[in-house]
Amino acid sequence: MRSAVASERGKGGPLRKPVPAARWAKGLSWVVRDPTTALAAVVMVLLVVVAAVPQMFTTYDPVQINPGIRLEGPSHAHVFGTDHLGRDLFARVVFGTRTSLGTSALVVLFAALIGVTVGSLAGYGGGLVDEALMRVVDLSLAFPLLVLAMAIVAALGPGLRNAMLALIFVWWSQYARLARGLVLQVREREFVTAARALGASGVTILYRHILPNCFPPLLVKATLDIAVAVLVTASLSFLGLGVLPPDPDWGGMVSNGRTFILDAWWYPTFPGLAIFVTVMALNLVGDTIRDILDPRIRE
């Protein structure tokens, strides 16, 4: 990969203006001054590590049933207690991290890819293509997200794969609208005109000159959306539409655990806490990225 400076100076190279390193550095020093965000970043890194190698963090098997120790409270041996089948809750929460983060990241990634493709084609192409594509987008934006996702999963049948498909299906349109708006703005800038004057093809202009300049707002939306996706996938699982048992999943654990609130408060509490902490960390990190990439909205 060429460095940002080289690509700016390079003959015939894209005339993009990347975020200067100085602004990142300034942004990062601001992170150090803000301990909450720094903590959130540490939590985020930790969560990614846990998702990558969950077996490093627990010696228990998350699906191993052990009827002798049903619904035991938190103890030294079982930090989060055990569930109604005697499974170690900490192990289940740890192994659930991968499902939760992985699913959410994939959903947002695919929604963004589809949405940006459609939106940028509509924005750049204009005319009839734009009109047709945007009517479809309007249509899908008119539905409440979770309600439609629920109905689609219900129709396809519950399960993680179907839940992801349903979420991508209801989510891509938001990216399409955002990307279209951004492309329309950037299209009128001088460097695009310059590239066109130099004889660049439409595809080159769109992918080398316009899209890279649309990237920051899309990245901010994607980061913050992963937080929403964690909540929505957990909600689907809570309703019995996401991950199927016995696979460990946070939303599913809260759902199972709520039947036992009279005897075992820890059962729904800890998996829910995992969701809460994850989403909060993602929100804080997302806000910081937004502040760095777009200093105008920093107060």
Binding site: S235, V254, I261, L273, F276, V279, M280, N283
Partner: peptide, 23 residues
């Protein structure tokens, strides 16, 4: 606002049930 934006609806409900009903 940070707290409520990060709080899963269903978990908040279950927590309230634990505190105000079960306990």
């Amino acid at each position: 606002s940070l707290f409520t934006a990060s709080m899963p609806v269903f978990w908040f409900g279950v927590l309230l049930q634990i505190i105000f009903y079960a306990r």
